[in-house]
Each structure stands twice: as structure tokens, then as C-alpha cells.
């Protein structure tokens, strides 16, 4: 599903974010990418959604080599990958329903489809009773669940979560992880980028560890080792 072939990413002023990383993630896997801050985790995530392009090597999503993906094709790629970030990126003047619907609206979905899909995904994340509230009227965990719902509206094959629990307390963080596991159980490939030791250790799923841009460990049922 996701293949990195000898990928390196260099930034100006001699910053080497990733060095010769080769890794493959199969469809339906739940993979945690861990490492200290500044080890290249987010760069790896950005390469998956083509927000960055590799300096060397190849990135392949499914059968699609996105190493030199044309700008016009990036939206098509992003509709196949749901993205969740640490900062929720919700629009404060829109309700939870409207925030989720926004993703469909800007992608050209018909109103009837929006009315059908949005309540469904909000139900999956357990917010169907609060869909008409504004982000300020719900907890951080619920805001993050809304973001996950928004990421699911295109029925993506991959869900990429970059530090989704970074702004949450332990209880809300666990709820989010439970939700990611639930989504994974539907067949969606989940890539979790995190430096939260407890979460990674409790998952008992595949763990890829990065250190200073190098892939230093790839365990099928791993633990946070650094």
C-alpha cells in the first residue's frame, strides 16, 4: 500500500530530514512511526500526502509512483488518504457537521451525498448527537474525533494520523486510539506518527523507529525503544 524505496529528503542549509529510508506498509496494517522530535517522522508523513517530494528515492502509494506527482494530481491523491493532525484544524465558525461537510463540499460532492455521508461518519466517531455544536462547545477529544470523521468522508484507503493525541489528556488520547483501531478493523491502513511511549507500547502493533533521519528499527509487534 505504501512503499518508500531508498528515500532521502534534504532541506537547504545541510538539514537531512530522511536518509536512505526503505520501508513497505501493507494494505490494512496499523503501523506506528515513532522517534524523538526532529527525527523525520513528520517529513515522512508529508511525503505520503505529497506535501513534500523526496530528494532521492521513490515513494509509491498503491500502484501510483508519487515521487514526481504533478501538482494537478495531488488533490486526487489526498482524497484517498485521510489526514489527522495534532492541531485539529477545525473551522471555529462552522458546526461539527459543517466542518465535516466542508471536505465534501470543496471536493465537489452533491448535497444529497453530503447529507447521507456526514451523519454516517459522525456516528462512527460517536458524535452524531453533537453534530450541530460548534468546536468551542465540545472537548478536545471530540474535536479530534471530528477531524477523524472529516478524514473519513472520502472513504480513504489510508488514514495518516500525525501526533493525533498530542493535545489531549490520557483518557481522550485512549479514546482516539480506540477509534483508530476501530477504523483499522474496517480495513483502512492506519499510519500513526507519535512519540507517545505509553500508546505505542499498549497497541502491540508494528512499530517503525526513526532516529536522526535513519530507519533504525522495524518490529512487527514492537515497543517504543528510544
Amino acid at each position: 500500500m505504501i512503499t518508500f524505496e531508498r528515500v532521502s529528503k534534504f532541506y537547504p542549509h545541510g538539514v537531512n530530514a530522511l536518509k536512505d529510508v526503505s520501508v513497505s506498509i501493507a494494505a490494512g496494517e496499523f503501523v506506528s512511526i515513532v522517534g524523538q522530535s526532529g527525527t523525520g517522522k513528520t517529513t515522512l508523513a508529508k511525503l505520503i500526502i505529497a506535501e513534500e517530494h523526496p530528494s532521492e528515492g521513490r515513494v509509491i502509494i498503491g500502484d501510483w509512483d508519487i515521487t514526481h506527482i504533478p501538482t494537478a494530481d495531488v488533490p486526487l491523491l489526498r482524497r484517498q488518504i485521510g489526514v489527522v493532525f495534532q492541531d485539529f484544524k477545525l473551522l471555529p465558525q462552522k458546526t461539527l457537521f459543517e466542518n465535516v461537510a466542508f471536505a465534501l463540499e470543496v471536493s465537489g460532492a452533491l448535497p444529497s451525498k453530503i447529507q447521507q455521508i456526514v451523519p454516517q461518519v459522525l456516528k462512527i466517531v460517536g458524535l452524531d448527537q453533537k453534530m450541530h455544536r460548534f468546536p468551542r462547545e465540545v472537548s478536545g477529544g471530540e474535536q479530534q474525533r471530528t477531524v477523524i470523521a472529516r478524514a473519513l468522508v472520502h472513504r480513504p484507503k489510508i488514514l495518516l494520523a500525525d501526533e493525533p493525541t498530542g493535545n489531549l489528556d490520557a483518557i481522550n488520547a485512549n479514546e482516539i486510539i480506540e477509534l483508530l483501531l476501530k477504523i483499522n478493523s474496517f480495513g483502512t491502513t492506519v499510519v500513526l506518527v507519535t512519540h507517545n511511549r505509553e500508546i505505542v507500547n499498549s497497541l502491540r502493533k508494528r512499530v517503525i523507529t526513526l532516529d536522526r533521519g535513519h530507519l533504525v528499527s522495524d518490529q512487527a509487534t514492537g515497543k517504543y525503544r528510544l
Partner: peptide, 9 residues
């Protein structure tokens, strides 16, 4: 957000 969710350029 538009970029993130795949809105066309």
C-alpha cells in the same frame, strides 16, 4: 484544510 481534504487547485 481544503488542500488537506483534496480540493482541486
Amino acid at each position: 484544510i481544503m488542500r488537506l481534504v483534496g480540493a482541486s487547485n
